[in-house]
């Protein structure tokens, strides 16, 4: 279902036919916090329907990369496009111009993001959490948005929680609502930022199952996670980031069982020692 071989280094103007055009194209993105460079000329291309899992040690820049995609973080160099449309910055000749807040907001509406800490709106019911953005951002009629919200709630198995407030839900349930909330905007791509890290171990499974279901439905996904066995199950491709650069990428079994670089080997060894897999 996914085009695993899509070239990660293409930066030229996209002339490929629509079907082969990458859904997400990150080219030459660099970012620093003060004197520390967190992303260094990162390029990555994700095909439609592809599931890319990003792994790496903490502080490696993987979360920052994800946050750059929908411009929750600014970056100093490079460009990112989603489905061919630039996000955040466009080029005019050699100039790099930041898009207007209105255009950035419109671009963000096409990208779904799920956070480590759920970030549901505490003052809204579950149903309104999901329907709010379609109504207020896209101008969808409330009934349509709420009907769609109920469908999505059914999909993540929480139909009975529509009228609850987030505080009454478990972490796993909140995270599934957050997934439904992001899906309600009909995003072209979904970003997952360590979405199970804040959960009690027994609640991780239900969230991963929802993500698995989404992947099987053909959603393009970029997933930052520490769950290696999940990465192996769900990923079409695993990307290993360390020190702000992509060190190695490839099929899950290649990366997890036959890494080519010492850095990946060392990371996996530390990881396995800690989690005894």
């Amino acid at each position: 279902m996914a085009d695993i071989s899509s070239d990660a280094s293409s930066t030229a103007i996209d002339v490929r036919p629509l079907a082969r055009r990458p859904m997400l194209e990150i080219s030459g993105v660099s970012k620093s916090f003060g004197a520390t460079q967190v992303l260094c000329d990162v390029s990555l291309s994700v095909a439609p329907g592809e599931v890319v899992v990003v792994i790496g040690p903490s502080g490696s820049g993987k979360t920052t990369l994800l946050r750059c995609i929908n411009l929750l973080e600014d970056y100093e160099e490079g460009t990112i496009t989603v489905d061919g449309a630039p996000i955040g910055y466009r080029r005019r000749g050699s100039e790099r111009i930041r898009m207007s807040e209105r255009d950035i907001a419109a671009a963000r509406a096409t990208i779904g993001m799920v956070f480590q800490s759920f970030n549901l709106f505490p003052h809204m019911t579950v149903l309104r959490n999901i329907a709010a953005a379609p109504v207020r951002v896209k101008g969808a009629p409330r009934e349509t948005a709420e009907a769609r919200a109920r469908e999505l709630l059914a999909m993540v198995g929480l139909s009975d929680k529509a009228a609850e407030h987030p505080a009454r839900l478990s972490g796993g349930q909140q995270q599934r609502v957050a997934i439904a909330r992001a899906l309600a905007m009909d995003p072209k791509i979904m970003l997952f930022d360590e979405v199970t890290s804040a959960l009690d171990p027994e609640l991780v499974g239900e969230v991963l199952a929802a993500m698995q279901q989404l992947a099987q439905g053909g959603m393009t996904m970029v997933v930052v996670t520490h769950e290696m066995s999940f990465a192996r199950d769900i990923a079409d491709r695993i990307v290993f980031i360390d020190g702000g650069v992509i060190v190695e990428q490839g099929k899950p079994d290649e990366i997890l069982f036959a890494p080519r670089t010492n850095r990946v080997r060392a990371f996996l060894k530390r990881y396995n020692d800690r989690y005894r897999i």
Binding site: L72, A109, N119, R136, V137
Partner: peptide, 24 residues
Amino acid sequence: RQYEAGRALGMRRWTLYTTVVLPQ
């Protein structure tokens, strides 16, 4: 994080304040 969640859903400043921030 509430601001981020709103922005990630494509909300612009006015919508973000009226639907997410001010009610809280």
